[in-house]
C-alpha cells in the first residue's frame, strides 16, 4: 500500500488532490460523478458576506486547450452557503477548504470572521486574485504591499489556517509569495487565471460580456509549473499548486516543482471524474517508480 497522504498546515490529508475554487461548485453538483470522500479536500466556490450577482453573459468561452471565464464570483452569500453547502459537506468525510472573496478589506475580514467560526471548515483560502471583479480580487493580489496588508488583516481575525491564493498576473511571483508569508499566511495557492481577451472577428465584439476573462486549462500548465517552482522556492510555507492539471503526470510534476497539494481546475468540466482518476494514477506511478511516500517527491526539483 503506497502512502499518498500529505501534511499541509499541520493537518494530514489522505491524498494531495483537491479541486480549484469555482470549478467544482461546493461538491454537490458533481456528487453523482465523484466519490467526494475519496478526494484529498474539497475547495468551494468563492463565498462573500452577502450574495453577489456576478457578471453579464456570455461568461465563458473556449480557447485552444483551455477556456476563459468571467463569472464575477456569483455566490449566494455566507449565510446560505453555511446552511446549505456546508451542511451538505459536513455529511461527508472530506476536509473542506472555503474560498473567501470580498470587495474591500472590511468585507474580507467580515467573511473570514464569520466562516472561521465553523468547525466543519478545515482551511480558508483567500481569493485576492480574481481578474473578473472590479473591486477587491486582483487589486489586492498584484501589489506586494496590498497583499501583505490584506494577509495581515485576515490573519488577525481568522481562527483557521489561511491560504492566500495568488495571481499569475505579476512580474515577480516570488516577491508576491514572500509578501503573503511576511503577512502571516499559513500557506499559498497558485495560480489563479491569466487575464485574457477574445474577440469575435465577424461581429467585431468581445466574446465575453466582461471583455476580459481569466484563462485557464492545459494551455497554461507549463507556466503554472514554473510559477509554483519559483514561489515555493521563495517561501517556507506550503503551496497548493494548480493550473491546467489534466492527468496524474501534471499533478506529479506540480509536486516536484514544490506543491504539497494540487488542485484540478477547468479539466473537471471536461472529465467530471478526473480527480478520482488522477488519485488512482498517482498510485500507479508510485508503483511503477518504487515511490513509497508521495510526500518524498515534494519540491524534489529545488
Amino acid at each position: 500500500m503506497k502512502d499518498l497522504s500529505v501534511s499541509f498546515c499541520r493537518m494530514k490529508f489522505k491524498n494531495p488532490v483537491t479541486c480549484a475554487s469555482g470549478t467544482f461548485g461546493s461538491g454537490i453538483e458533481y456528487s453523482e460523478f465523484v466519490d467526494l470522500d475519496g478526494l484529498g479536500a474539497i475547495t468551494t466556490k468563492g463565498v462573500s458576506v452577502d450574495a453577489w450577482e456576478g457578471n453579464p453573459t456570455p461568461r465563458v468561452a473556449e480557447t485552444p486547450s483551455g477556456m476563459m471565464n468571467a463569472i464575477g464570483l456569483q455566490n449566494p452569500g455566507a449565510d446560505v452557503f453555511i446552511k446549505r453547502d456546508l451542511a451538505f459537506l459536513k455529511k461527508h468525510d472530506v476536509p473542506v477548504i472555503v474560498n473567501v472573496c470580498g470587495h474591500s478589506t472590511e468585507e474580507y475580514v467580515k467573511a473570514v470572521k464569520l466562516l472561521s467560526e465553523r468547525e466543519e471548515i478545515a482551511l480558508l483560502e483567500i481569493n485576492v486574485s480574481c481578474p473578473n471583479v472590479k473591486e477587491g480580487g486582483i487589486a489586492f493580489g498584484t501589489d506586494p504591499k496590498s497583499l501583505f496588508e490584506i494577509t495581515k488583516a485576515v490573519k488577525k481575525v481568522s481562527k483557521k489556517p489561511v491560504i492566500m491564493k495568488l495571481s499569475p498576473n505579476v512580474t515577480d511571483i516570488a516577491l508576491m509569495a514572500r509578501s503573503a508569508e511576511e503577512g502571516g499566511a499559513d500557506a499559498i495557492s497558485l495560480i489563479n487565471t491569466f487575464t485574457a481577451m477574445k474577440i469575435d472577428i465577424y461581429k467585431k465584439s468581445f466574446v465575453l460580456a466582461n471583455r476580459t476573462g481569466g484563462l485557464s486549462g492545459p494551455a497554461i500548465h507549463p507556466i503554472a509549473v514554473r510559477m509554483v517552482y519559483e514561489a515555493s522556492k521563495a517561501v517556507s510555507i506550503p503551496v497548493i499548486g494548480m493550473g491546467g492539471i489534466a492527468c496524474a503526470a501534471d499533478a506529479i510534476e506540480m509536486m516536484m516543482a514544490g506543491a504539497v497539494m494540487v488542485a484540478v481546475g477547468m479539466m473537471n468540466f471536461h472529465e467530471p471524474s478526473l480527480m478520482t482518476d488522477i488519485i488512482k494514477d498517482i498510485e500507479a506511478w508510485m508503483d511503477e517508480t518504487g515511490t513509497e511516500k508521495i510526500s518524498d517527491i515534494i519540491g524534489c526539483m529545488h
Partner: peptide, 13 residues
C-alpha cells in the same frame, strides 16, 4: 455558452 453543464461553474445564467 456553457462550461460544466451541471450547475457548478455558473457560466450559463
Amino acid at each position: 455558452r456553457m462550461a460544466c453543464g451541471v450547475g457548478a461553474c455558473l457560466g450559463c445564467v
